[in-house]
Simulated scan of single mutants.
Amino acid sequence: MTRPAITEIRPHIRDYAELTSLEVELAKDRGSLLVLPVGACEQHGDGLPLGTDNIRADHVAHAVVEQLAGGAQGQAGRAFVLPSIDYGVSPHHRFLPGTINIGPQLFIDLITSIAHQLADAGFAKLLVITGHGGNLASLGVAQQSLLETHPDFVFAYAPVSALAPESTAALPRTEVSGHCGESETSQMLAIDAHLVDTDHLSPGATRLDDLDPRARLSRTKSPSTAVTFDRYADNGVLGDPRTATAAAGEGILGEVISVLVSYCQELQKL
């Protein structure tokens, strides 16, 4: 039986999983960019959901693909969001409630397996957006592994919050800030305030002088060392999320999305 041929992908489709097999073939022929959101299932203090990192990564991925589709003429159907990976590398959160850690090797194997299959099927470009900073080292390993096995496959990866230095610098942050703190909480308020239990937002580690010597040393970016987050604070929070606002979150996410759209437009030219 001869399979039918199509010349267009349904214009409203943004998700890879919603494509038909015929549309996938056309997407490959068009050199479509695939975007993979990854996160983690881990504690996020007493006021944010366990899936905070997935929610932020997925939100950014869909916003980027939507803007790409609405940009230059003919860009619709040239970028799609893959089903997300909602578990990540979280051993540093394993002593706090709710965390499910799959570890670095399994995460690397999962990412490289997906990339191998996409490359072997004929796709050429993949951008991974991670809402969880703990995944970055493993994504770097995956990138190097793919250079060995599929050197022509373009594998890029990016964090979320770190792409918004200007908006983040404008936040009223404590001396120690980060996980479940002012930035992440602001982003979640902007995405869906109903997912934030504002009555239970509470500060965690806010001053370097409050940390024990090893925890304080781990806040130095380079050289780098690590501790489990229960060592920072009982609730695993870095900063004071009570100062977070939806408006600040919109600014952070807007900066992140703008940076990634510009980058993806360059990827699509390859």
Rank of each mutant, 00 (worst) to 15 (best):
3 R>V: 15
7 T>N: 03
9 I>D: 02
15 D>K: 10
16 Y>P: 12
16 Y>T: 00
16 Y>F: 15
18 E>L: 12
19 L>S: 06
21 S>D: 08
23 E>Y: 04
23 E>H: 05
26 L>V: 09
26 L>A: 04
40 A>K: 00
45 G>R: 02
47 G>F: 12
48 L>E: 05
48 L>W: 09
51 G>N: 07
51 G>R: 02
52 T>C: 14
53 D>F: 09
56 R>A: 15
58 D>S: 11
64 V>Q: 05
66 E>D: 15
66 E>T: 10
70 G>T: 01
71 G>Q: 01
73 Q>D: 07
75 Q>L: 06
76 A>T: 01
83 P>C: 13
87 Y>L: 06
87 Y>G: 00
89 V>G: 01
92 H>I: 03
93 H>T: 02
96 L>W: 01
98 G>F: 12
98 G>Q: 03
98 G>N: 03
99 T>M: 09
99 T>R: 11
103 G>F: 04
105 Q>V: 12
105 Q>W: 10
105 Q>T: 12
112 T>C: 04
119 A>N: 00
121 A>N: 12
121 A>Y: 09
125 K>A: 11
133 G>I: 07
135 N>H: 03
137 A>I: 04
137 A>W: 08
138 S>V: 00
139 L>K: 08
140 G>Q: 13
143 Q>Y: 01
143 Q>H: 06
144 Q>M: 08
146 L>H: 10
153 F>K: 00
153 F>E: 00
154 V>C: 05
155 F>D: 00
156 A>V: 09
160 V>H: 04
164 A>P: 10
165 P>V: 01
166 E>I: 14
168 T>N: 14
173 R>H: 07
175 E>W: 01
176 V>N: 02
180 C>Q: 03
181 G>R: 08
182 E>F: 07
184 E>G: 10
187 Q>N: 08
190 A>W: 04
191 I>K: 03
192 D>P: 06
192 D>T: 04
192 D>S: 10
194 H>T: 13
195 L>N: 08
196 V>K: 14
201 L>F: 14
202 S>K: 12
204 G>N: 03
205 A>M: 01
206 T>K: 02
207 R>E: 15
210 D>G: 05
210 D>Q: 07
211 L>N: 11
212 D>S: 15
212 D>T: 03
212 D>K: 12
214 R>A: 06
215 A>E: 05
215 A>V: 09
217 L>T: 04
217 L>D: 04
218 S>A: 14
221 K>N: 03
223 P>N: 06
226 A>W: 05
230 D>H: 03
236 G>M: 06
241 P>F: 12
241 P>Y: 10
248 A>D: 07
249 G>I: 13
249 G>A: 09
250 E>W: 14
253 L>G: 05
254 G>K: 07
254 G>F: 14
257 I>V: 15
260 L>H: 08
261 V>L: 13
262 S>D: 15
264 C>K: 01
265 Q>C: 08
266 E>H: 10
266 E>C: 06
268 Q>D: 09
